[in-house]
Design a protein around this nucleic acid. Sequence first.
RNA 1: GGAGCUGUAGUGUAGGGGUUUAACAUGCCGGCCUGUCACGCCGGAGAUCACGGGUUCAAAUCCCGUCAGCUCCGCCA
Length: 601
Amino acid sequence: MESKQGLKRTHGCGVLRSDHIGQKVVLMGWAQRCRDHGGLIFIDLRDRTGIVQTVFDPARVQEEFSKAESVRSEYVLAVTGKVEKRPEGTENPNLATGQVEVLATNIRILNTAKTPPFYIEDGVDVEENVRLKYRYLDLRRPEMQRALELKHKAAASAREFLNSRGFWEIETPMLTLSTPEGARDFLVPSRLNPGSFYALPQSPQLLKQLLMVSGIERYYQIVRCFRDEDLRADRQPEFTQIDLEMSFVDIDDVIELIENMIVSIYNATRTSNLDLKPPFPRLSYQEAIDRFGSDKPDIRFGLELVDFTDLAAHCGFNVFSKAAESGGQVKGINAKGCGSLSRREIEDLIAFAAVYKAKGLAYFTATGQGLKSPLTKFFTEEEQKTITERFKAEEGDLLLFVADRPSIVADALGALRLHLAGLIGLIPQDKLQFLWVVDFPLLEYDEGERRFSAMHHPFTSPRDEDLPMLKTDPASVRAKAYDLVLNGVEVGGGSIRIHRRDVQEQMFAAIGISPEEARQKFGFLLDAFEYGTPPHGGFAIGFDRLVMLLSGKKTIRDVIAFPKTQSAADLMSGAPNKVSAGQLRDLHIRIDLGGKLKENR
RNA sequence: GGAGCUGUAGUGUAGGGGUUUAACAUGCCGGCCUGUCACGCCGGAGAUCACGGGUUCAAAUCCCGUCAGCUCCGCCA
């Protein structure tokens, strides 16, 4: 192994082009591949800018040649040499640097490397746990570096955009207080206050509102948020938001700002040539649910839900009529061209729908001679014609129906819609379809707790005209809330906030927080509202999700340098781990696993 | 808390009660090779078949359990 001393890197490997021919360069990077022809050695050298071929000719570099012979994959090298045009016929069109090569005059082995558990290249076929255990190697792969670079550029352009719009970047504490409502908190014990705990922020919601009280007027922060809930492909226990808040604004002001910020980010990171122009389409919550069965619909394709409740009400098929009569719905979806699905495949669809609590799937097949189904006997010819028309059924189509409570109908058909679109191949992969969902209900009824809870969060303002209904008809109150959806993924959400103490108290009352609890947990906010709080509102973008979609990844883990597994573990470092008795003693904490002992990793 | 899929040399897979001394590819090691770029050719090493029980004369293979990873439901204002 040799020292780097005295050598200065002159170029990135990936930047060399024909223009550089004749130049003497010093490159530093990793050995991608070595091709030893006995009398001639090629070493592909890689750094974060790309790959270039270096050549070792024994006639020109005698003692260096034996060093080159000893090079293995992922050795760290400094190569000095001259950029030359490749001999006629040996150019490599698959390499950006393929017109040239570096004829080495000197090589220093800066470090050796064990054989990596997987190749450092794009599209590796390895189990994710291996990638996660050796994350530092996984991140060496060009596609991972591109994702992290894209994320960096997105953050930089968001900052630039918000700065230009008069926003100030202000930090808020990570050690903050636990409040009721919302996700489960990550807790941090306070050594100086035995028995008390900080909570890591689920978002800086209250603090940014208080910054509005402070007259900051425009705040933003690219900030880590923590929620101790179960993980998914697009959910990590810690994730990053572009969080912002502004005073003296209405819904349209925030939406305009976010649309332009998104376009700036897209332009700074563009990987495709889409025409992304505001305004983005808007859909009311109710329309989204009615047409797509989801409050974050993917509108890149059709396959919309069709209401059938009116016809179902007086048909002879009990499942349908009962659902329709008891306040439920009967809705369906036209699976274009799925009429040829086998019995077995339809059973699979039924099992799929069952996950969302649908008790079954009724179906009709459209044929040249009308509808075919065990259910046709329950419908007159006239009614069957109506079905055909309403579903725009053509020969070879499959109509699938769910009859149940509206929420189950929406969930099951909404999920089925996405599933079928994937099967049929209806989803355009290279499209970025943004969509606003607006007019959310302020509250939703929690069957389990038998009370209303905030759909967005308890600081969301009701629409002015709906305010009186907060006491009389809470379910009908609409919120000044808006979600940003991209390709069926919720990538952001925000609202105009409550800025009056009396309204905030009404809101707490509506969701069953007693005046005492409100004063105890949110007293500082209520007090603040009495000192001249401006009307204000804001937004938060799920930054990892946005970057995931912009970079075409299927999971948020692929755009987070060191993500956690589904059981919230870090396979590389071993976190979370056990701590010493002394540490626990300092914190006055005693562990009671109640028999739930998990082996130490 | 629940459902499904997965776990076999470093990596990716095959083998689904005894013809297995566990196969193939790639990687790795050694040799040969002056225009390769997934270099090529020859040779070699490398596996307590995730872990723990059980059934059996015999288990990588069948059964039960555990653990881990992924996807999803619940959960995530």
